[in-house]
Amino acid sequence: MAEATDPRPAFRVASPTATRELVLFIAIVVVGAGFSLASPYFLTVGNLVQTLRAALELAIVSAGMTLVIIMGGIDVSVGGIMAVSAILIGKSYQAGLSSWVVAPIGLLSGAALGAWNGFLTTKLRVPPIIATLGSMYIFSAIMFLVIGGAWISGLPGTLSPLVNGWVVGIPASLLVILAVYGIGWVLLRQLPYGRHLHAVGCDERSAGLVGINVDRTKIAAYSILGLLAGFAALLYVARLRNVEINIGTTVALEAIAATILGGTSIRGGFGSLLGTLLGVVFIRIIQNGLVLIGVSSLWETVIIGGLLITVLTADAWRNRNNPRIA
């Protein structure tokens, strides 16, 4: 047991992702400033609130995705989970059920589909990328089979105050996002489960050796993500009053992008919900800004891809002294 004359500098920063969060925040401010100069509509309350509402579903799903990635997994099927949940929600509304019944249905269906992914990756030992890829196919198939190419439309907007409403001058959407991220933060930092998530993401084998139920930790993480996807589906229906055929097509990749931009390590073991939230804001601001200045929205994907590559390169450069598993 060596003395404190260890020449290697200790990691003193309280939160290793603080740098990334700061950088993202500055980037948001800079980009926001740029857009507000380029377009008079950008900095208006109306526009910002509109952007917030559009970011709602992505923000909620990204919170869950952060948990799963910290745990060392990944889930590209969340769009499909959203879609199937939305269909169940739509059909339930059409059957005349009240929101009190429909909401739990949406949440539980999401959680169940998430648990399915968890099952595949633990009990059947399918690597997460393959398992969730396969699940995505299966969920898409279910969606097509149930609604074909048509939409489910004319759904009640009973829950839309959650999206469109205001509480004491604050947009309800903002409160919902803060609530979800607040609970997520508590889970991650203040509850034992959060420690278990980090441990499994760090080194699954060691976590098992010290007595953590690795399978249960993983299944729980995927289920939480599914639950949040179900919640996002509820809010989607509340906002659009429809279930459209393209629901959830981009949410998985955008959620992963937001999470990685926000500083969560793709290898698992550490991450930041605040960073993810900033990542979501950043992505949505760019999308909104581009539309306002007349640049085709098709450039978004290029920009997000470029950002991801930059961020990943920066991470890699930062880790260049660490011996890696070859």
Binding site: I129, L253, V302, I303, G305, L308, T313
Partner: peptide
């Protein structure tokens, strides 16, 4: 060379290349 995990790296290039084609 940069040792970025292949999943993430090719996900990012998928975005970038595909987006470039569309844009």
């Amino acid at each position: 060379v940069l040792r970025i995990p292949s999943l993430m790296a090719t996900l990012a290039t998928m975005f970038a290349f595909g987006g470039l084609a569309l844009a």
